[in-house]
Nucleic acid binder design. Structure first.
Length: 261
DNA sequence: ATGGTTGCAGCGCAA
């Protein structure tokens, strides 16, 4: 067991296209656990051999073309559960496993745009089910790290231009309120807790209109920690350099380090 | 700029 456990989350926007970057990241950043989203492949097409060759185990949920999530871990994984508990979901958006003493999830929360469509309703339904599941984990005194693409920018500080994004599903008050409901249960969002006033700290830059070059990003990828895990939080970062590589994902990795886990 | 880009699938849709 390492003295410090490093857990990263990264929406890769296709594991097939991004496999080279993911393998490079495992070698250079050496997270103990890497949570992936938008893998866009069925479970049986997940490239586990290349990942296992670097000393990681892999558990995945997926579907053809869209969605998909995975957990990569240097440490043994047990009790893998696919799908958000208590929510009938045709889409592959949630996977959870036990690593050491932690319940760890990789989740891809629905985007919800446009907000006048049933996609937004689906997003809010998904968030209510997620909140209920977090409540259950807390009731069990289960230590956890729930990481992924939440598709919620919690506050205006997390958005390059709040006015431009006001009608976007990631900024809507209904989505922000449900995100806060999770926080108010007693959950800690790692990045903002250690960097309360840091601006220009984004995890996503649109491919369109030169968003990366103009610094027009949003912070929607998060690591949520249960109370005893939050007590062990020592460092958090966003690996923005990944966005400047050739053929990048539109998201970059967000990571945290936990001591004494 | 009622645009712009990427990935997938397959000649539109999701992000």
């Amino acid at each position: 067991m390492p003295a410090v456990l490093k857990i990263a989350t990264w929406n890769v926007n296709s594991i097939k296209v991004r496999l080279g970057h993911v393998l490079d990241y495992l070698r250079s950043a050496t997270p103990d656990v890497l949570l992936l989203q938008e893998t866009k492949v069925p479970e049986d097409q997940f490239p586990r051999l290349e990942i296992e060759a670097l000393g990681y185990r892999a558990a995945a949920i997926g579907q053809r073309g869209y969605n998909g999530a995975a957990i990569l871990s240097k440490l043994p994984m047990s009790d893998v559960a696919r799908g958000l508990p208590g929510f009938e979901d045709e889409q592959a958006r949630y996977i959870e496993a036990t690593i050491a003493d932690l319940r760890i999830a990789s989740l891809y929360l629905p985007n919800g745009n446009p907000i006048d469509s049933d996609k937004f309703t689906y997003k809010l339904d998904w968030m209510r089910a997620f909140r209920n599941h977090v409540r259950s984990l807390l009731a069990l005194d289960q230590a956890f790290v729930l990481g992924g693409d939440y598709n919620v920018a919690p506050e205006d500080i997390d958005v390059f231009d709040p006015a431009t994004m006001a009608e976007d599903a990631v900024c809507r008050p209904e989505a922000r309120a449900l995100f806060r409901e999770v926080i108010y249960l007693g959950v800690t969002e790692a990045f903002r807790t250690l960097h309360p006033d840091l601006t220009q700290a984004y995890s996503y830059y649109d491919y369109q209109a030169g968003a990366w070059e103009k610094g027009r990003g949003i912070r929607i990828d998060h690591l949520l920690l249960s109370p005893t895990v939050a007590d062990r939080l020592v460092q958090v970062g966003i690996d923005r350099a990944q966005r400047g590589l050739k053929q990048p994902s539109d998201h970059v990795p967000v990571w945290c380090e936990l001591e004494g886990v």
